[in-house]
Structure formats: structure tokens, C-alpha cells
Design a protein around this nucleic acid. Structure first.
Length: 598
RNA sequence: GCCGACGUAGCUCAAUUGGCAGAGCAACGGAUUUGUAAUCCGUAGGUUAGGGGUUCGAUUCCCCUCGUCGGCUCCA
């Protein structure tokens, strides 16, 4: 109750600050006409959009901010009043506030007859409120202007671009500083930084932006993930197949992707007069595998899985590290099922996903989104009852498995609703980690069929699903979540062997070979460096276990082990170490005693 | 793609109003044989992202291209 009250109060403060910002912009740029867009609150503050002759730049922020402080310090009341719609349109038209007029006209269409207006000082704005009663409620050191960015009017890229000024606002100066500190810390664990520090991947301008190159270490993480997922899927009745990244454009015309997805597909390659494209998804290839022979209902479900390479065209400003790339690999599958099987198969898919995210240690990090279509948009195929059926199944399964899900209207695929697995990057941005879809349409388009038990021809329902997203994005998320310290089974180097002295090198090598036989990943640091130096560097590389090998160990045929996070060390016979490490590597659990000291 | 910011040695960062481009770490050479987060000394390293312009003189000012970052749009 108290918390809610505080949240409401903070929201009023932020909202009020957006008005103050708009007022300050008016005053600051008084020589040029400014049209106001909208000014809502955000999770960490507020923003306001402005249409200006010249875009607002970062250098304006400082003076805008101090101007805002002066305005706030005047202890002015926020006063609410109302206008009839027609009066408001007349008034704002006269003020040349055409963006506001557009908003008011929308309100009129929705049947409103009056609009509310808030005035602070001599600044008047159309606004639903609520606001603080007086600017003295605003903590004068609790806010600051953060950055400027471009934003399309009403979020539509066909509209003009406005200047958006973002501000931070918190209940106190301390809270603002705490937020800044948190953001600074998060930067340290950005996967792009970790990737560089730990030598996991490289983005080369020469190869091309959005086309990351994995180093041996990065490739190791990928290989381990891949082996784990593939084994897991094989165990659950998936067939792993391989299909090419190139395919005839006509396949994608048939699937509807060409029509709906053209902007994300690279221009076709002309090969002997035939048009081929780099595939943006795998579906048609798997469909053709399915279609290569007749099927009986007894064969279903058929589950084709693949770690699929695919390419999607992105506009340059959208690329980001491993999270947003032009070429990537999806843990992909298409399930061909009968109507009776859909529910169970979807459920099994979700159970698989739950197992996977648990193994990856992400169970508390991700959430589900039931992505539904937006009736007002045209991009969705027009089969209303099919949509309802698919949605009902997803909802039922989500409820039965007690998934914690939100609904996302307008996030569906064009051919069906999705169950998405969502996460947040360390920078706070929400991303889809992966997605599952029920597809009632494609079988029809590709004339896919099976013989039903009643001797009629039937259409399979297709489930598009991913068990662990695309490798690149999943690795990025893992790196950020674990702050670069991947669990042992995923770590590219699991053990650093650190001989104290030259004369311990042979024994270190012996242990190295022993561990290698057990498929463990080892690095031996036999450089002529101090032990301190070797430990420091192994820790910076976040190698899970550091094993010191000196005369004592050599004599007793033991090893002295410590983990990367604690200084606590423990000596044990090398056989014991191998046993424990092998167990940890295989099932993802932690070594007992040492793990506890973490 | 659009708006804004940024691009200096392999990495992290300096360089006064336009006046000889520098440090730490890494690399390399030498010494040190080290017991739980940096041993010491030395050497080398640059078309200041690329191209053009202004200027006696440009890392610094202007323009273009490329790339990076934050947003918008799109999206796995």
C-alpha cells in the first residue's frame, strides 16, 4: 500500500518533470518554433518529444537542465482545467500546435467531448494528468537530463522524426546516484566487453558489421551448448536434420514470407536465371523434407530439428554485438502433428524449454509472453477461428504449466500466435530470447498432407519452436547473466594449471593429460611468471578452477584447488579432483566443498 | 534506414584557445625460479578510422565515407 503510494507519487513527479522540460525547451529555444509531441514517464524517468527546426543536441541538455531547476524552484502550482474538444482544437491550431491537434482529433473520434489541460507557470499543455500539486514536491536534485534521441512521431517511421529528450527522475539525489552507479556497473558486464576481455568473439569491419567471428574460446561455448541441446532433443524424439542456407526464392513466395518479410531478406542471387535467397528461416526446407514422402497419421508427430544457420537483413542502426546480428544459428525445429496432438506437443516443447533454461541457470531470468495479433493491423492472415484455436491451446498449456506470462498484443507472427521467451539485456532492454508458434496456414500453402485414420487426406498442424534461441543471442545473455563467469560445464577453459616452478612443469603436464582424457578443458600456464601473476590472470579470465602445482603437490601426487571467486583452497589427490570435476562437467552441479565457499 | 554522440598504439585512456602525439597494461629482449590478484630493467609500437577541405601549421575546425554506442523503427 505504502509502496504503491510511493510509486504513484514518483510517477506524478516524473510526469510533471516532462512538462517542466517542455516548458524549458520553449524558453531555451524561444527564437525558433517548437511543436510539442508527447511527454510520458518511463521506468527511470520521463521524456518529451519535440518537433524543432534543428534537432536538439546533447550540448543543449546542460542549460535545459539548469533552466528546469530554476523553474522547479519557483514552487509553482500545477493547475488542472478543461476545454471542450472544439475549443481545444481551435486553441491549439491557433498556437500552431499541430501535433496536439492531431491527438485531440483522435480523442474526438473516440467520442470524448472534453479534454483536460494542465498549466504550470505560463506553460499550458494538453494532458490527462495526474501531476504534483506544486513543483516544490519535485526533488530538485533527484532528476537530470540523460540524453537525446530521434523518435518518429507516433512511432511510425513514415512520420517525421522528432527530437526526444530523455530525463532521469528519482525520489532523491541518492536514488538518482544509485541508479547511475547501477548503470555504470552494468556496462562492465555488457557481453561485448566480456567478449573482448575473454577473447570470445570479434566483429571485423572487413568481414562486415553484424557478422561476428567466434574465436576458439567462443566456438567452444557454442559447441558445448550445441551438443547439450542436440542430445537433449534426440532423447525427446526429435530427428536432427541438415538443410542448406540457400534456397529458391519461390519457396518463400509460397510460404508468404517473401510478401510479409521482404525487407528482412537479402536481395535474391541470380543463379542461371533462377532466383535464390539466403534463407531468413528454415521452415520451407523442413516442409520439403516432410513432403518428400507420403505420411500416415501413424508417423506423426514428426519432429525435425536443426541448428539452422540463417541470414536476416537488418538496418545498420539495429545491429548490436551478438544480440542483433545479420547471420545467426537457431536451435530450430518444426513439428508436424495431427490436431489431436497439438496440445501435448506444445506442452512437451514448453517442458523441454523449462528444462533447458533451468540447466542454463536462467529460470529466474526469463519470462513468457503470449504474443497475440493486433486486430487493427493487416499483416496477419485472415483465419479468425484458427487464430482463436491456436491462442486457446497456448493459453491452456501456459495455464496448466503455471507459466508466468504476459500478453503482447501485436507481437504474433503473421501466421499465428506465439509463446515467446523474454529476457532483459544487462542494459535493461527487453529482447525475445526465442519463440514458439502454432501454424495452421503453412500446410495448406505447401499442400502438406498425411493419411488420417479415416482414410481421408488431412493437413498437419505445424509447430515452429526453438529450444534455446539462437546461439549468438543466447551466449550473449549467458555472458551477461553470469557476469562473464560461466558455469564450469559451459566455460571455454575450465581449469588453469599453474606450476609454481619450472621443475613442476612435467607434473603439471601429466595432470593436463589426465584431465584431457576426461574431456575437460585445460590451460597450462608454464610461463616464467610469478604465481601471483598467473593467478591474477586466470581470475581475470574467470576460469572456474585454479590449480596450483608446486613441490608439495608433486611429492604427494595431489593438487591444490581454488575456485575463481574465493581465496579458499583445498588440496586433494588428483584422482579425486578429476572425479569431482567430471561430475560437475557432466551434470552442471558444483563441486561440493569448494563450491560452498562461493 | 532515421536522430544524437563517439572513433588517438593490440587493450584502457591522456594531449591548454589549432603549435614536435604521450602513459599504464599487453608484446618483444634481458635479469629474476617465484606458494595464492600485477618482480625489475630495457626495446619497439602511430598515415590520430579512411578520404577531401580551411590554415604557415589540424588529433583539434568544416564536408563526405566507413565503423561503434544510445534511442526510434524493425526484430531471434
Amino acid at each position: 500500500m505504502h509502496l504503491n503510494h510511493n510509486a504513484e507519487a514518483l510517477d506524478k513527479i516524473r510526469h510533471s518533470l516532462s512538462h517542466i522540460l517542455a516548458w524549458a525547451v520553449r524558453v531555451h529555444f524561444k527564437e525558433q518554433p517548437i511543436r510539442l509531441g508527447i511527454g510520458p514517464t518511463t521506468e527511470e524517468g520521463f521524456y518529451y518529444d519535440f518537433e524543432t527546426e534543428k534537432p536538439i543536441s546533447n550540448s543543449d541538455l546542460k542549460s535545459l537542465e539548469s533552466l528546469m531547476r530554476k523553474l522547479v524552484a519557483k514552487n509553482l502550482p500545477f493547475e488542472r482545467s478543461s476545454m471542450t474538444i472544439s475549443h481545444a482544437i481551435e486553441y491549439f491550431t491557433q498556437q500552431d500546435a499541430l501535433l496536439k491537434v492531431e491527438l485531440i482529433e483522435d480523442l474526438r473520434e473516440r467520442g470524448e467531448t472534453e479534454v483536460s489541460i494542465y498549466t504550470v507557470g505560463d506553460f499550458l499543455d494538453l494532458c490527462a494528468g495526474p501531476h504534483v500539486e506544486n513543483t516544490k514536491e519535485i526533488p530538485i536534485k533527484g532528476f537530470s537530463l540523460d540524453r537525446v534521441a530521434g523518435a518518429y512521431w507516433r512511432g511510425n517511421e513514415k512520420n517525421q522524426m522528432l527530437s526526444r529528450v530523455y530525463g532521469l527522475a528519482f525520489p532523491s539525489h541518492e536514488a538518482l546516484e544509485a541508479y547511475r552507479k547501477q548503470r555504470e556497473d552494468a556496462e562492465k558486464y555488457d557481453h561485448r566487453k566480456i567478449g573482448k576481455e575473454q577473447d570470445l568473439f570479434v566483429i571485423s569491419k572487413e568481414v562486415g558489421k553484424g557478422l561476428p567471428l567466434l574465436t576458439a574460446k567462443g566456438a567452444t561455448i557454442r559447441r558445448v551448448l550445441e551438443r547439450y541441446i542436440v542430445d537433449e532433443e534426440l532423447e525427446r524424439g526429435y530427428q536432427h536434420v541438415n538443410t542448406p542456407v540457400l534456397g529458391r526464392k519461390s519457396l518463400y513466395v509460397t510460404s508468404g514470407h517473401w510478401e510479409h518479410y521482404k525487407d528482412s531478406i537479402y536481395p535474391p542471387l541470380d543463379i542461371d536465371g533462377e532466383e535464390f535467397i539466403l534463407r531468413p528461416m528454415t521452415c520451407p526446407h523442413h516442409f520439403m523434407l516432410f513432403d518428400s514422402k507420403p505420411h500416415s497419421y501413424r508417423d506423426l508427430p514428426i519432429r525435425y530439428a536443426e541448428v539452422s544457420p540463417m541470414y536476416r537483413r537488418e538496418r545498420s542502426g539495429e545491429l548490436s554485438g551478438l544480440v542483433r546480428v545479420m547471420g545467426f544459428h537457431l536451435f530450430d525445429a518444426h513439428l508436424f502433428v495431427t490436431p489431436e496432438q497439438v496440445e501435448k506437443e506444445i506442452k512437451d516443447v514448453v517442458v523441454l524449454i523449462q528444462d533447458v533454461i533451468k540447466r542454463l541457470g536462467l529460470a529466474d531470468q526469463v519470462w513468457y509472453r503470449l504474443s497475440l495479433r493486433d486486430d487493427t493491423k493487416e499483416k496477419y492472415i485472415d483465419m479468425p477461428t484458427r487464430w482463436q484455436e491456436a491462442e486457446a491451446i497456448l493459453r491452456k498449456v501456459a495455464d496448466e504449466l503455471a507459466l508466468n506470462y504476459v500478453e503482447g498484443v501485436g507481437h504474433a507472427a503473421f501466421y499465428g500466435p506465439k509463446l515467446d521467451i523474454q529476457m532483459r539485456t544487462i542494459g535493461g532492454k527487453e529482447e525475445t530470447l526465442f519463440t514458439n508458434q502454432i501454424d495452421f496456414a503453412s500446410a495448406e500453402r505447401f499442400d502438406l498432407k498425411y493419411m488420417a485414420s479415416d482414410n481421408t487426406t488431412a493437413r498437419p498442424i505445424i509447430i515452429h519452436r526453438s529450444s534455446a534461441g539462437c546461439i549468438e543471442r543466447t551466449i550473449a545473455f549467458l555472458l551477461e547473466h553470469y557476469r562473464g563467469a560461466l558455469p564450469t560445464w559451459l566455460a571455454p577453459v575450465q581449469v588453469a594449471l599453474l606450476p609454481v616452478n619450472d621443475r613442476n612443469n612435467a607434473y603439471a603436464e601429466e595432470i593436463h593429460q589426465l584431465l584431457r582424457k576426461h574431456k575437460l578443458r585445460i590451460e597450462v600456464d608454464s610461463r616464467k611468471e610469478s604465481l601471483n601473476q598467473k593467478i591474477r590472470q586466470a581470475r581475470l579470465q574467470r576460469i572456474p578452477y585454479l590449480v596450483v602445482i608446486g613441490d608439495k603437490e608433486q611429492e604427494g601426487r595431489t593438487v591444490t584447488v581454488r575456485n575463481r571467486d574465493s581465496g579458499i583452497q583445498q588440496s586433494m589427490p588428483c584422482e579425486t579432483f578429476v572425479e569431482r570435476l567430471t561430475a560437475e562437467n557432466e551434470n552442471g552441479t558444483l563441486m561440493l566443498e569448494i563450491a560452498r565457499s562461493e
